[in-house]
Design a protein around this nucleic acid. Structure first.
Lengths: 342, 342
DNA sequence: AGCCAATGGTTAATCGTTTAACCAAAATTC
DNA sequence: GAATTTTGGTTAAACGATTAACCATTGGCT
């Protein structure tokens, strides 16, 4: 890279002080600088292709205009979509984004936090709070500004923007109930993560509200490591029950994909023999004959709000912001037939 | 964020000079520093939770250990996958990644280049060279180190890592020909972009090599803006020809998605009535009954090599590197039946 | 004892920008 | 016309880390 042009270079060429050049290029003290000199400086800066050295400026002003984005894996479409939204939102406020993928690994997350701290990012957006309650707690103690997205910990007094998971399950069950389904099962992960618990809680309270029973075996929990097999076993079990299930709520797209593939393999017609609603979008099932009804995360809103909240924190605006946004129920073919056909 | 701890803070607490602290924490001049003092410094640094201020270090050393990644849209799965690979590769060499999405817009790209230059990134990886030959030419003049991925310009003497597009088309046609297909059409974009031209050129020379005719109407070009309609029209036309087509090569996944959906709508059996090979993976068609045979970009290799090439450039290792990697033909159901069934 | 080298540090300049404080000359006020 | 204000700048310190150059002791050797 060719030697960069500095303020000093411009100042020397024009025979003025660097201070003056700085003032002009930053539009400061405009009333104290003659129009002609100011113009000369601007012209020279352009001619010499001057670019602010943000590093030097940051050192002096203690502002890097950079935020850090931590995701589980940027190659995951959800994470990437969020990254894009945050990028755009940050750019509006003249911020750049440094990102890192933690792979849901606490050690990696710690390392990333270190790298970002070292580079003096002014705040963090964290979409990777999987098993990192401790690390996040440390951030809180250190006073690092950050906003969690999607996942959060009820025990930590931190800012977050997330889905109203409880309400989302209600929406799903309301919809199924309204379409006449009564035997509704749930397939979820056997995790203690708060948002998954909320989804289950929402299912249970919705069923109660509709005075629908939840028979033994209607709530199935699968592991992350052996999802496919366990989803298949879960479905087998739910079909073999004395009160077999006619509709299913899946709490994640991964679960849904395995579920639908298996239901398809069993030759069950969707939605006539099995109605389906799932959390999250699933592009992988785009060509499925009965497009899935799903609970859409307002990712765009979440990203935008999180970025705005974070950038406001810098401006002294402290106090934690906790937001639970409603999901959007996107109704498609997988859940609209009534049970009459059964 | 709480006040950060600086070298000076450690030095003062211990009653030594900042220089000494710096030497110790960077493991410099180890033979000239007593074990005890070194240990004291290290302990204090840990106890005080000292973190290098990379900004200050960068200013002094003129190394930011940061590279820029320019993609068309980070929310695009391809771009995101690449981002992840580059992130990992950069991290190995202790580099961080600043990214930006240009949306294939030259103006945006220019702005991003500016933002990144301002932040003193040491080099760029560009996966967004869509309509930006001019901007890229400028980079070259300025001496900014960069590596292009996937797209490049034959007229520009710049480093790149790309697919051997010509050869990839050969692979596809060879495969189809070996399976007995003769009436093979091509659906591509009507763009002058080099890689697309190469794909077309590859198709044509492969057909010639196999002594297969390419009848009028067998090469169809569609626009980016109206892809779907034009793909459908193209397929209609190719089926209505006096020499109708029995196999298709799509030059991008977007084209393939529209194509397959339409072929499916027409009720044509794949591959019995229409064999298909496409460039790029297409997760959206994962549930299609005849999984598509596709030409897989060695994205992982491309990203890793590009990053390595770029980081070597910093070490004075100049000279442009131009690499065309072979595609991997992933054979699946959409192209393996012979034409006997026709 | 006298000289030199090794040991274990310190000093101070520097990177490029920002910004409070200062200053000289010109213009205004009474 | 002396005092004050305004105008249009300049000076210099600072941000935090790095690093070449320097310095004071101590120890070894003849």
């Amino acid at each position: 890279m060719n030697k960069k042009v500095s303020l000093k270079d411009i100042a020397q060429k024009l025979g003025v002080s660097t201070a003056l050049v700085s003032y002009v290029l930053n539009n400061r003290r405009e009333n104290r600088i003659s129009k002609e000199v100011a113009q000369k400086i601007r012209d020279a800066a352009r001619a010499m292709n001057y670019k602010t050295n943000q590093i030097a400026r940051s050192l002096k002003t203690n502002k890097t205009n950079t935020i850090g984005l931590l995701v589980a894996d940027i190659s995951n479409p959800f994470d990437a979509a969020l990254a894009r939204i945050i990028e755009d939102e940050a750019e509006k406020q003249n911020y750049a984004v440094l990102f890192g993928s933690s792979d849901g690994d606490a050690r990696k997350l710690l390392k990333l936090l270190d790298i970002l701290a070292t580079r003096q990012v002014e705040g963090l957006i964290i979409f990777a709070a999987e098993h990192a309650e401790e690390q996040i707690g440390d951030l809180l103690k250190q006073g690092t500004p950050f906003v969690l997205i999607d996942r959060y910990f009820p025990g930590l007094d931190a800012s977050y923007v997330a889905l109203d998971n409880h309400e989302a399950s209600l929406q799903a069950i309301n919809h199924l109930a309204a379409n006449g389904f009564k035997n509704i099962g749930l397939v979820t992960y056997n995790t203690s993560l708060f948002h998954m618990q909320e989804r289950k809680r929402g299912y249970l309270s919705a069923m109660a509200q509709h005075h629908l029973p939840v028979h033994d075996g209607w709530v199935q929990q699968v592991t992350v490591t052996d999802t496919r097999q366990q989803v298949e076993a879960a479905i087998d079990e739910m079909l073999a029950l004395p009160h077999p299930v006619h509709a299913l709520l899946f709490t994640s797209n991964v679960v849904a994909i395995h579920g639908v593939k298996y239901i398809n393999k069993l030759g069950l017609k969707v939605p006539q023999q099995m109605a389906i609603v799932t959390f999250d979008e699933t592009e992988a099932l785009d060509m499925f004959y009965a497009p899935l009804t799903y609970l859409k995360q307002p990712l765009k809103q979440m990203g935008a709000i999180a970025t705005q909240v974070l950038l406001q924190k810098q401006n002294g605006n402290s106090g934690n912001v906790k937001i639970n946004l409603p999901a959007e129920l996107v109704v498609r073919a997988s859940s609209i037939a009534g049970p009459g056909v059964l």
